[in-house]
Amino acid sequence: MEKNRAKKMYDYHVWANTQVFQHVKKLPDGVYGDTLKSVFTSIKDVLVHLYATDITWLEIMKGSTIQDTFRKVEQRREEVRGISIKGLESCYDELYKEYDNFFALEPDLERTVVAEHPKMGVCEFVLADLIHHVVNHGTYHRGNVSAMLH
């Protein structure tokens, strides 16, 4: 598959997340899970939220039902409860591989997918737009981490 703009944006998302993990791992023990007064209670909570949301959108892009998506997200959230920064980074690495597999198998990122949400009803999304949303959401929350560290 030729790298299109959406895939390039996703590659940036992976790179930027990697930078956050590299920085947080260098900080004193405890900073990752310390309770802070912010939008999120800890850096870990931000990173887990970002991880869960990236899973959600990948499942929607793959055509999973919203019920299956919610189940998978909750299962994976449970798997990362109490996990170290290095462990969470490994989970992110596995998720990046899942996205790469999706990109390798999806020939048309301009294709529309339909998802039914219990509150929002039937929604139509262009895959490339969802990928841009994933990246923008990640940028926003990496900003939360930056603010929390300052």
Rank of each mutant, 00 (worst) to 15 (best):
M9S: 15
D11F: 08
D11R: 06
D11S: 13
V14G: 13
V14H: 14
W15A: 09
A16P: 10
N17I: 01
N17V: 05
V20Y: 07
F21W: 11
F21E: 07
F21T: 02
F21D: 04
Q22E: 14
Q22K: 07
V24H: 09
K25E: 05
K25P: 12
K26I: 01
L27N: 05
P28H: 02
P28L: 12
D29W: 07
V31E: 05
Y32I: 01
G33E: 09
D34Y: 15
T35F: 13
K37E: 05
T41M: 08
T41C: 08
S42Y: 07
S42Q: 06
K44Q: 15
V46M: 06
V48A: 07
Y51Q: 03
Y51D: 08
D54T: 03
D54E: 08
D54A: 01
D54K: 01
I55W: 09
I55K: 09
T56K: 03
L58D: 03
I60Q: 00
I60E: 03
M61L: 09
M61T: 11
S64A: 14
T65Q: 01
I66Y: 08
Q67K: 13
Q67S: 11
D68H: 03
T69H: 00
T69G: 04
K72F: 05
K72M: 11
V73E: 03
V73A: 11
Q75K: 06
R77H: 08
E78L: 07
E79Y: 11
E79T: 08
V80Q: 03
V80A: 04
V80F: 00
V80D: 08
I83W: 02
I83T: 09
